[in-house]
Design a protein around this nucleic acid. Structure first.
Length: 470
RNA sequence: GGCGCGUUGGCCGAGGAGUUAGGCACAGCUCUGCAAAAGCUGCCACACCGGUGCGAAGCCGGUACGCGCCUCCA
């Protein structure tokens, strides 16, 4: 398949190094609060990429991290559980939000059973080992408040700092960056390890005979977990565009300082932001929605998934309730198609000649073109609604729904049939129509509507569909 | 200030030198006792100014506006 690579700024043919299994690291959540739906976009993109790689015939080994120790988790745990020991408070807080995160993931159709989750706090030791190694080789130095990575030393070793973006004198000018609060040698050096501060959870750490009890810096977490979970270099690293700098750039530097080839991952893929009123959704800007917010407004989490899939992952996407409404309506129509599996009424088979599925796959293989894939899917929807499904092709249809779900995760294969009672009402209505007892027929239609079912009368008999709740 | 991306119809959103994207909304029509979230039809757009092409919305250059990164951030 083809995929845009931030390292080369071009769309390239992607294949795993060993030809069979993709080693894939996708940046995960900082578990200090509910994720907002902008965050969720990144996870939907990673999940869809995972599905597409599988459809391309590859095995996928994907690691996702939980950042469960950093400034925000520490701060929030202190606020929320002031009477607990710092470590206990941290664990309590992060366990809570990991659970919420996993629930969100499932609700928006992301698979979690195929991800290897790694928590930073479970991997302190490999981080410390990396830091010690970097220090030993002269890429890290000790300061009063912790251990820092020396970008200068990295550059002097002949490696490039700035693989993912163009760094110039102007945008790296030290005058532009206020770092008075840190004891580092150079403005762009970053913390590998932060020495203990009062009230913070800590892990013992000794380096060069000095007691450095404290906690890891953010960037080293991903470097250590990627190396441990996947080996290095691995195939693919993903995240939001805001991770390009400094996070991923710093990961590359740390992870490759003592390597022959400065390659952390062969591909970096980054998704663009979800915008609200034309601006990036962000906690700090207070312009965000959570999944709970939109569910509370009556929208289906899978409508949100569809909204995300309707735009290309490298384009900024516009979020609004009006757009979510449109996605919800489109989802209803896809579901109406899926529900045809319970209403075998077609006369002429047509499904085996429909090219929608393969054109969809091809769209996904072209740099994950989900909007085009959905466009191609529409052909299938129109044909199905028009010609219905016949007995001979029911099995094929169901198999196709499963394939669709494997690709897009919209839950079209998991639909439930209506009850026997409801089927009976529909049959009864047909009888009254035959008898031309229109008043009674309309009454039955109303009764079905109260149960959430609409009926359209076709030449092949009545077709039910689920009405939108609300 | 530097680096990068974008500007497509009422809204969302692909494509990308000559041929319908698709969806949502809206309007008309069709089958129909009624109805339909069913079908058909209409709405046929690509910021602006130059340039290169037989031909440009698509390529090149510039202008305007917008967004992002340079600080934690998906």
């Amino acid at each position: 398949m083809k995929l845009y690579n931030t390292l080369t700024r071009t769309v390239q043919e992607f294949a795993p190094q060993d030809g069979s299994t993709v080693r894939f690291y996708s940046c995960g959540p900082t578990v200090y609060d509910h994720a907002h739906i902008g965050n969720l976009r990144a996870y939907i993109v990673a999940d869809t990429l995972h599905r597409t790689l599988q459809a391309a015939g590859y095995g996928v080994r994907r690691v996702m991290n939980y950042t469960d120790i950093d400034d925000k988790t520490v701060k929030r745990s202190q606020q929320k559980y002031p009477n607990d020991e710092p470590m206990a408070a941290l664990k309590k807080l992060t366990a809570e939000y990991i659970k919420i995160f996993l629930d969100d993931m499932r609700h928006i159709g992301n698979r979690v059973d195929n991800i290897i989750f790694m928590a930073a706090t479970d991997n302190i030791e490999p981080m410390q080992k990396m830091i010690a190694d970097l220090h030993k080789k002269g890429f890290a130095y000790l300061a009063d408040d912790g251990v820092y990575f020396s970008i200068d030393a990295y550059k002097k070793s002949g490696k490039k700092y700035g693989q993912l973006l163009t760094l110039t004198a102007e945008n790296t000018s030290e005058a532009r960056i206020q770092n008075d609060e840190y004891d580092k040698e150079s403005a762009h050096d970053f913390a590998l390890w932060k020495a203990q501060k009062p009230g913070e959870p800590t892990w013992p750490f000794t380096l060069d005979g000095r007691d450095l009890t404290g906690r890891p810096g953010w960037h080293i977490e991903c470097s250590a977990m990627g190396r441990k979970g996947l080996g290095q270099p691995f195939d693919l690293h993903t995240g939001g565009v805001d991770n390009i700098f400094p996070h991923h750039e710093n990961e590359i530097a740390q992870s490759t300082a003592d390597e022959q080839d400065p390659i952390l991952a062969h591909f970096f893929a980054h998704n663009e932001h979800l915008l609200v009123d034309g601006k990036k959704m962000a906690k700090s800007a207070n312009n965000f929605y959570t999944l709970a917010d939109i569910v509370q407004k009556g929208y289906d989490p899978l409508a949100f998934r569809l909204l995300i899939l309707q735009s290309h992952y490298r384009s900024q996407a516009q979020f609004s309730l009006a757009n979510l409404e449109a996605a919800q309506n489109r989802l209803q129509s896809l579901r109406a198609m899926a529900d045809l599996q319970f209403q075998v009424k077609g006369v002429e088979p047509w499904l085996n000649t429909d090219p929608s599925l393969s054109s969809m796959q091809n769209a996904l293989f072209e740099d994950l073109n989900t909007p085009l894939a959905l466009g191609n899917l529409n052909n299938l929807v129109t044909l199905a609604e028009e010609r219905l499904i016949s007995t001979d092709e029911l099995e094929l249809f169901q198999k196709m729904l499963q394939t669709l779900d494997q690709l897009l995760g919209l839950g079209l294969a998991d639909r439930q049939d209506i009850s026997q009672e409801q089927k009976h009402l529909i049959t009864k209505r047909e009888q009254t129509r035959t008898d031309k007892a229109w008043g009674k027929a309309d009454e039955l239609r109303k009764q079905l509507a109260n149960q959430g079912l609409g009926i359209r009368d076709t030449n092949n008999g009545p077709i039910w569909y689920r009405l939108r709740e609300k």
